[in-house]
């Protein structure tokens, strides 16, 4: 057995090439997982679709949309954002699963760029969420949702939704590294679900008890939802609070803030694995 040992990169350019190659190798690993478990992917995608159908047709008839218009018009931007928020669970499960099985440690003992463990996961999960969002949009179009203010503004809304997913990616990676075992997935779900519902996705914050309504208005998810409704030209709750009036700004600031907090925390946590 003679194996040619590839030389270690010495220049910054060569190191960057390694980092990109390794990140892409690990992204491909995640993509291969989908290919090998299509049923799981389909089930994962069907869940939000089912939720849309349920709310649209079971509850939709009874819902009064502010300013008139169809319930689908109102519902879908919220469902898009919820889908992005639930992506946190996917990231958490993958990161904590690798840590628990010792796969992360094996990666760390290899002659590869260690940051690729994180970047590979980030790219794979963003692709996953982009696909999920595309499917949700198709589903939305099928149940009567439309965008009204042009493709440019609609794409901007999609960009904001993915920005939220990008930010939550780092929260998922951080929590996954801290937990170190997927057993805490239920705990993360318990964390994500109230955040999802304690928002303006289904009900107007103004109808909630005062303090609860304030939390719902300032929820990062609500900012993205309001901004998406505005950009798609869909009806929203309106509301006169500062948060409601500046949803576009908040839909950019919140994800940035989350990223600024959790990205360095994730990097630090990853480095601390060697403590």
């Amino acid at each position: 057995m003679t194996v040619h040992v590839p030389p270690i990169p010495r220049t910054p350019a060569a190191r960057l090439r390694w980092a990109l190659t390794d990140g892409w190798t690990l992204t491909r690993r995640a993509l291969t997982h989908w290919a090998r478990r299509p049923a799981q992917v389909v089930v994962g995608l069907l869940f939000p679709v089912m939720t849309v159908l349920m709310f649209r047709y079971l509850f939709g008839g009874q819902m009064r949309v502010p300013g008139g218009g169809g319930y689908a018009e109102f519902l879908l931007p919220g469902m898009y954002a919820m889908t992005m928020a639930f992506g946190l669970e996917t990231t958490f499960a993958a990161v904590s699963g690798d840590a628990a099985k010792g796969v992360t440690d094996r990666f760390r003992s290899l002659p590869m760029t260690s940051s690729a463990v994180v970047t590979g996961r980030a790219v794979a999960d963003l692709l996953n969420s982009a696909l999920a969002l595309a499917l949700m949009v198709a589903c939305g179009l099928a149940v009567g949702w439309r965008w009204h203010d042009g493709a440019g503004r609609a794409l901007l809304a999609v960009g904001l939704l993915l920005l939220l997913r990008f930010a939550l990616l780092w929260a998922g990676i951080y929590l996954g590294l801290v937990a170190g075992s997927p057993e805490l997935l239920a705990a993360v779900q318990i964390l994500v679900w109230p955040v999802g519902f304690l928002s303006n996705v289904f009900a107007a914050p103004s109808t909630m008890p005062g303090w609860l309504g304030a939390i719902a208005e300032w929820n990062p998810l609500s900012a993205t939802v309001s901004a998406a409704r505005e950009l798609f030209g869909n009806p929203g709750w309106g509301g006169g609070s500062w948060a409601a009036r500046h949803s576009l700004l908040l839909a950019v600031l919140w994800p940035m803030l989350i990223t600024f907090v959790f990205l360095p925390l994730s990097v630090r946590r990853f480095r601390r694995l060697s403590r």
Partner: peptide, 11 residues
């Protein structure tokens, strides 16, 4: 390592 660290979904 102490735990078998291979990817269980892949072949």
């Amino acid at each position: 390592g102490q735990r078998t660290a291979v990817d269980e979904i892949l072949s």
